[in-house]
Simulated assay, not measured.
Amino acid sequence: MAPTLNVGVFIYAGADIMDFSGPVEVYSTRPPPGTPQVFSVKTFAHTNPVGGENSVLVYVPGASFAEVEQQLENYDILVVPGAHPDIITEFVASEHGQKTLALLQRFAKLPPRKEAGYRILQSVCSGAVILGAAGVLAGRTATTHHICYDMLKEYADKASGGDSGINIVKKRWVDGGETEAGVRIVNAGGVSSGIDASLWITELVGGKELFQFTEEILEFERRGEGQAWGVKQA
């Protein structure tokens, strides 16, 4: 029987609601009857409760940041949502932001658990800027919300102390390949793109049948990697 992959979804004050709720919806969708659950999802945050964008909704996370930090090797997928650029700037410079960057750097160096076979660091929207600030996107192809391309380049270069070699592309989502430890980096474009990226990851780790079932349950047709916002398909 295939192992359950543990998914940690990070939430912070001002994070875009769909950035994290989209992946949560995909990963928490029940599989076909009679088949085991592939994902076990838990949200976590530095504070409890934590307010989403404009504090329209206030959340009680399933775990504290400290708890996930202590048990990081048990998490197979880590999801980092985005927010308004001003919020990202404030967050990265904060104490909580610096602790988050350290967590991401550590996660990117953890080999996949043998029983899981995968370790994935996933960003959604401007969450890629947080990954860039952590230095894990240097030399990789990446994407983010279309208004944050320059910001992503700036933060990735700053983390590298010069030209990071990041290749920023206008795509719906990007598989940026694996770190030396075998951690796969996946970036989704703006907001709703996180659903597409999460469905792609579902197919990657759970197979085509699970992906198609989840897509059907969500009544959401996954868009291809090249179908970025504003890119017309022939």
Rank of each mutant, 00 (worst) to 15 (best):
M1W: 12
M1H: 15
L5D: 03
N6E: 15
N6A: 15
N6G: 04
G14A: 02
D16I: 04
M18H: 08
S21T: 15
T29H: 07
T35Y: 10
Q37N: 15
V38M: 12
F44P: 00
A45C: 15
A45G: 08
H46I: 07
H46P: 05
N48R: 11
P49G: 09
S55C: 04
Y59S: 07
V60T: 14
P61D: 03
G62R: 01
F65Q: 02
A66K: 12
V79P: 00
G82F: 02
G82V: 03
H84Y: 14
P85C: 06
I88H: 00
T89S: 13
E90H: 14
E90P: 00
H96C: 04
T100C: 13
T100I: 06
L101S: 08
L101T: 08
R106D: 01
F107S: 02
F107E: 01
K109V: 00
K109Q: 14
L110W: 01
E115H: 10
E115P: 04
A116T: 11
G117A: 06
G117T: 08
S123A: 12
V124D: 02
S126V: 04
G127V: 07
I130K: 00
A133I: 01
V136T: 03
L137T: 10
T141C: 07
A142E: 07
T143V: 06
Y149E: 12
A159M: 10
S160T: 12
G161F: 06
G161P: 01
G161M: 09
G165V: 10
V174Y: 00
G177N: 05
E178Q: 13
E180D: 13
E180G: 14
V183T: 14
I185M: 13
A188T: 03
G189T: 02
S192V: 14
S192I: 14
D196Y: 07
W200M: 11
W200L: 09
W200F: 13
E203C: 09
V205W: 01
G207S: 14
E215W: 06
L218F: 09
E221P: 06
E225V: 12
W229R: 12
Q233G: 08
A234T: 10
A234D: 09
